[in-house]
Nucleic acid binder design. Structure first.
Length: 643
DNA sequence: CAAACAACCTTTTTT
DNA sequence: AGGTTGTTTG
């Protein structure tokens, strides 16, 4: 796509003084504290353009963002400003950057470069195997943490650079007695991954750090290649990412980190907003620039959001202000129950579209994916199109994982995890048999005759033969990726129909998966993306996105903005999440979450706090509005009061 | 050792 | 409402 001919940029016209200072900063570390809606993205985009205008080679710029999509969007905006292509600018997440380096240099660490990336559920599966094999007559698994818990605790320990024991005691004090065994499993887990040529998300950071720390030639190369590093959403990085950044920038120290401590919402995965506070210590000589003018929201909305965050006990002091005086007061309302809330939302949306507000300018936000289930049915009833972001992920559904496992073993034959998954699908094959066979196949390769695996025959030899033939074909054939996926799908459909009542829906998902491959020419790229940059779950296709209402978790709404934001379930028991109640830190994060939600709104903000909630154990119960909402002076709202 | 069934609990949030 | 875990049966 050809954009309009770039004209020379008038930086001082397009930017305010603080933004200009950040954009035109010379080398050395810079920390930009960018309040919500203060033109953070604009600043990064202009910074890239400015660097290129100054003669910096685009291929020596690295843009680290939360998703690759965010990076691409920024780069395409920057490309409209400057002449020439910015295609050579590297952009992505810390994880994808780590992946890139490890695909090249993993050999230096004694790894194959053909390693597969485990997602969270793969890790849990692996822990489950180890946990079971550990269980003997001595170990009572009932008073022992579940695989899921182990995965969380160990990952947290790595991300926060603390011991497994501390991490366990912090999060699950009642399992403190199991610390020794959990540590043992954590060690076995590392061995398991190595044996199977696997890396999990943490490894992509840990091994990259190790690579750069232990191999100075690699570190020198890499850090010399990227002369300028820009990091977005720095408040959501963890200690590993900070360490990785130091190494990546070790040649020149040209790092610009942009973030807002008030919007730090990823502590649960080890992110620590202290990172942003400590950036100046990590990079001595840091210049700190604050962006405090808000361009997004009206004054009445800012009054509410400032009120939410001023009660927080964090960070860099800053005061957001705006020159946009007008606009309606935010609306707070208390529907009787969830049904009423859903109807209220539908009513709002209809009114807005009647007033010619494009529906894509409206978003409904919520704390957790399942909070919108009732609304989704109500929207469908009223034929209001919507797309949903966040919550359960497409690639993590069982059927997608099953099909992907067949492809994964062709890329990485040592992957026993995937082999086991594949074999367990066969009739008459359970965990034991599957693991035994997986071990044989991963060690000795795919036998041409299944009989070699089961010398004594067995009823299901034919089935095993079939899947072995399938995988061998996938491996050797040079047909397109889409064809291969389709081949696996065809093989898999009977299993689907036999085991799931909703198989038509799942079959559609699998067709969608095959469609996704069309953009890829390499299987490895495809598999990496499925693990690192999973596609949005909407099946509707991207054209529809512009004509649909957005439903999103607050986490997935980060960095985005809408003319109207409707926050649902702003009630106790939802925000703050009950899981956060015991910890002051987590409670603070819930407050910031509400802050992030409210600051997405440009003109209209609607906050709904139903009076009752359905709970499986307690049935219907009365609930109060969220404590964070009750604290806001009521004169900042129009609408009902909170009692 | 696998399959079928019942209980269960989980369920923040995501790379 | 879903998958997961435990129990029983074959």
């Amino acid at each position: 796509m050809k954009s309009a001919l770039p004209h020379s940029i008038d930086y001082s016209r397009d930017l305010n003084p603080a933004q200009l200072e950040a954009v035109t900063a010379s080398g050395g570390p810079v920390l930009v504290i960018a309040g919500a809606g203060s033109g953070k993205t604009r600043t990064i985009v202009y910074r890239v353009a400015w660097l290129v205008e100054q003669g910096v080679d685009p291929s020596s710029i690295l843009l680290l963002t939360f998703t690759r999509k965010a990076a691409e969007e920024m780069l395409s905006r920057a490309a409209m400003l400057v002449e020439g292509s910015l295609a050579q600018v590297s952009g992505g997440t810390f994880h994808s950057t780590g992946n890139l380096l490890l695909r090249r240099h993993a050999g230096r660490l004694g790894f194959e470069t053909s390693f597969s990336i485990m997602d969270q559920s793969d890790s849990i599966d692996a822990y489950e195997h180890l946990r079971k094999s550990l269980a003997g007559p001595v170990t009572d698994l009932k008073s022992f943490p579940r695989a899921r818990t182990i995965a969380e605790v160990v990952s947290r320990a790595k991300g926060t650079q603390t011991s497994v024991q501390d991490s366990l005691e912090y999060r699950y004090p009642h399992f403190a007695h199991a610390a020794g065994l959990v540590e043992k499993i954590a060690g076995e887990y590392d061995g398991y991954k190595r044996l199977n040529n696997l890396m999990d998300y943490d490894d992509l950071l840990l091994h990259t750090i190790r690579l750069l720390e232990e191999h100075d030639d690699v570190r020198a190369d890499v850090s010399a290649k990227w002369q300028h590093i820009l990091v977005d959403e720095y408040q959501d990085t963890n200690r590993l990412q900070a360490r990785m950044l130091v190494l990546l920038a070790s040649d020149n120290g040209n790092v610009m980190a942009v973030g807002d401590d008030s919007q730090s919402i990823y502590a649960f995965r080890g992110a620590d907003f202290h990172n942003i506070m400590e950036f100046p210590e990590l990079f001595p000589g840091t210049r700190i620039i604050k962006l405090e003018e808000n361009y997004r929201s009206t004054a009445p909305i800012l009054a509410v959001t400032n009120s939410i965050i001023e009660r927080a006990s964090v960070g860099y002091p800053k005061r957001l202000y705006t020159r946009q005086g007008g606009g309606p007061l935010p609306l707070a309302a208390r529907p009787m129950d969830e049904r009423q809330q859903s109807r209220f939302v539908v009513q709002c949306v209809k009114e807005l579209t009647d007033h010619d507000i494009p529906i894509r300018e409206v978003a409904v936000l919520f704390r957790a994916g399942y909070h919108s289930f009732d609304l989704e049915t109500e929207l469908a009833r009223n034929s209001i199109p919507f797309v949903k972001f966040g919550g359960f992920k497409f690639v993590e559904s069982v059927h997608i994982k099953d099909v992907l496992a067949h492809l994964r073993v062709t890329a990485n034959p040592a992957d026993r995890l995937s082999w086991t998954r594949i074999l367990k699908l066969l009739p008459g094959v359970g965990v034991k048999t599957a693991m035994k066979l997986a071990d044989r196949i991963a060690g000795d390769g795919i036998p041409s005759d299944a009989g070699e695996l089961l010398p004594r025959g067995g009823k299901y030899l034919q089935e095993i033969q079939k899947v072995l033939d399938l995988v061998r074909h996938l491996k050797e054939s040079d047909e397109s990726l889409a064809n291969k996926v389709d081949r696996v799908n065809q093989y898999y459909y009977p299993h689907l129909m036999e085991n799931y009542d909703n198989y038509p829906k799942r079959m559609k998902d699998l067709e969608h998966l095959a469609d996704l491959t069309v953009r890829y020419r390499s299987l490895n790229r495809f598999l990496n993306d499925m693990a690192l940059e999973p596609p949005d779950q909407d099946r509707t296709g991207s054209d529809q996105r512009s004509t649909s209402l957005v439903l999103s978790t607050i986490h997935s709404a980060k960095g985005l903005e809408w003319q109207t934001v409707i926050l649902i379930w702003a009630a106790e028991g939802r925000i703050p999440s009950p899981m956060a109640l015991d910890s002051p830190d987590e409670l603070e994060e819930e407050r910031r979450l509400l802050y992030v939600a409210a600051t997405r709104a440009k003109h209209n903000l609607v906050i709904l706090s139903p009076r009752t909630m359905m709970d499986r154990t307690r049935g219907i119960s009365q609930v109060r509005a969220s404590r964070f909402v009750e604290e806001i002076p009521q004169e900042y709202f129009r609408g009902l009061s909170f009692d």
